[in-house]
Amino acid sequence: MADGTLAIYRRLVAAQVRSQAQYRASFLVELCGTVLFASVDVLAVLVVFRVARSVGGFEFRAVFLMAALSTCAFALADLTVGSIERIRAYVRTGLLDAVLVRPLGALPQLLAADVAPKRVGRVLFGIGLVGVAAHTARLDLTPARWLLLLVTPVAGAVLFGAIFVASATVAFWWIDSGEFAAALTYGGRDLTSYPMTVYGGLFRRVFAYGLGFAFVGYYPALALLGRRDPLGLPAVTGWLGPVVALGAAGVAASAWKVAIRHYRSTGS
């Protein structure tokens, strides 16, 4: 039964890929576009180190590793879950109705049907970037650290995915929420590119620990580099990414359930 469900989603994804493939020129342009945007984000990190020798107490190779982990995690989440941003349009126009009358879960159905294959470019860029950063940082890769290096982007993607979904549910209560969700999703991507020592006070407490962004790049990078956390958390924190991510996913799933119940279909 479970296998059958997966096969259905695979078909929905394939249908979306076939649909997109019809617009080949646009697809190529957008594929390049996503890579271009990802490079602009990384460029910002590089430029900063032209002016400063360290940022938040960390030298280039450490920050670059954090930024690479963040870029890769965000790209994965953007590919798989990013299209949930469109939920605002679905709620506004009542298009969600057509999704809700099918015998499939609404969230996986939306994700499968709206997947944006053009974002594959960004994922490849992110993976390459992690490789370069790991090399630049001259990591001492024990088997445990190898595992951490592989798991971290996935855990980060799950966390970003949870943020994507949870912030998208805001649209069910607040249809005109505009760019609100972007503050948490794209904001989170920018935020996780730098060490958490950079941020101050309440802002750090809310974003780094409250929303869990510290576990995307910062703590795993510390564990990979074998550094102590200047903020005082124990070394094991670097390994908590998957736990935090699963917790966030649970919260997002509950938020989604409540939101669907709250859905007030508009239009005739």
């Binding site: 249908a15 076939r18 649909s19 019809q22 298009l95 109705d97 057509a98 009358v101 239009g267 005739s268």
Partner: peptide
């Protein structure tokens, strides 16, 4: 007014 069909297929 809301299609159940795959628009591009």
């Amino acid at each position: 007014q809301r299609s159940q069909l795959w628009w591009d297929l």
